Simulated scan of single mutants.
Amino acid sequence: MVFIRPSTVPYPTVWHRFTVRRNGTTASLRVQDLTEDKFDAALALLSEHFTRDEPPCKYIGINNYPTAVAELENLWRKTINDKLSLVCVEDKDDGSSVLVGVNVLTVVCKEDKEEPFKSEDKVWAKLFGAVDLVARSVDLFEHYGVDKYLTAYGLVVVPEWRGCNIGKEILRARVPLCKALGIKVTATVFTAAASQAVAKKAGFADLFEITYEELAQKGFVFPGVEEDTKSSKLMALVID
């Protein structure tokens, strides 16, 4: 079955509010549902920063392969139509708002028809194939005794806001979201040491880890990726 956001869960909803100190001032931010009016801006943010900064994308040089970029953008576009993804927005004093982060989210159900990942695009096959391998390393349904879980296809914070714990706060917003959706577990493949550290701060625990050297032995080669991070991890958070 394809998970559909329950009509009992208001859309849009603000799931989390917080403040941070930045440039000597206090900024007020909120994490809310990604609404249609922000779809284009969110996709542009992902296309500009995720493709450039996420280690496997960076070291395989995805931006040199338009068809692979198109595959990734199609995945994001299809996923955000589920109306489960989140954005972090700064509320300005003049009433305007600024998009500072995006997390592309979806729900995987036990009854979903699973088909092995395949792609004729070699770069996309390597990128998504590596994530798919890690994601399938643990049977989350059996491990947690659940019939569905929340997962992600990308988390990005604009460079000017990095170092302010924005990523951690976006991840924390999954807790009220999951509670509203009746979901007991959220799990994600974190491909960068930085995002792994952020996830740990947000309460996520390691379920599976594989080094990029081991991934290379399986055919998923990202030359130089070890300069940024040594491994890819499947991490999960149980929702109390």
Score class of each variant (00 low, 15 high):
204 F>W: 00
226 E>H: 08
92 K>R: 15
24 G>T: 10
223 P>Y: 15
146 V>C: 01
130 A>N: 02
148 K>Q: 11
53 D>F: 07
2 V>C: 05
104 V>A: 02
80 I>K: 04
134 V>K: 00
238 V>F: 00
51 T>P: 04
8 T>S: 15
95 G>H: 12
56 P>I: 07
16 H>L: 06
14 V>E: 02
89 V>D: 02
77 R>T: 13
59 Y>N: 04
139 D>T: 12
211 T>F: 04
147 D>N: 15
157 V>N: 05
77 R>W: 03
19 T>F: 07
75 L>Q: 12
88 C>H: 01
207 L>D: 07
96 S>K: 14
98 V>A: 14
28 S>R: 14
80 I>N: 02
127 L>A: 09
201 K>I: 08
235 M>E: 07
134 V>P: 04
10 P>E: 09
124 W>F: 15
168 K>R: 14
163 G>Y: 04
170 I>E: 03
223 P>T: 12
17 R>E: 13
103 N>T: 04
49 H>F: 14
158 V>L: 09
103 N>C: 00
90 E>A: 14
174 R>L: 01
55 P>T: 11
105 L>R: 03
132 D>K: 13
214 E>A: 15
52 R>F: 13
61 G>V: 12
165 N>F: 13
164 C>A: 14
60 I>W: 03
113 K>I: 13
220 F>V: 12
17 R>F: 01
196 Q>N: 05
227 E>Q: 03
87 V>S: 02
56 P>E: 03
101 G>D: 09
157 V>S: 06
79 T>Y: 09
201 K>Y: 10
238 V>R: 03
35 T>E: 15
158 V>F: 04
178 C>P: 01
228 D>N: 03
150 L>Q: 04
53 D>Q: 13
7 S>I: 13
193 A>M: 05
113 K>V: 15
115 E>H: 11
79 T>K: 07
80 I>D: 02
87 V>G: 03
15 W>I: 03
179 K>N: 00
139 D>Q: 14
188 T>V: 12
13 T>F: 06
39 F>S: 02
116 P>W: 08
114 E>H: 15
68 A>M: 10
119 S>V: 06
165 N>Q: 14
40 D>C: 02
230 K>F: 04
91 D>C: 11
42 A>L: 11
16 H>P: 03
180 A>R: 08
158 V>Y: 00
5 R>E: 06
193 A>V: 01
151 T>M: 07
237 L>T: 00
140 L>Q: 10
208 F>Q: 07
192 A>D: 06
39 F>E: 12
111 E>I: 12
11 Y>C: 01
236 A>I: 05
173 A>P: 04
48 E>I: 09
159 P>E: 11
99 L>T: 01
103 N>F: 08
206 D>I: 02
63 N>F: 07
150 L>H: 07
81 N>Q: 15
21 R>W: 05
208 F>A: 08
52 R>V: 10
13 T>W: 08
100 V>H: 10
127 L>P: 03
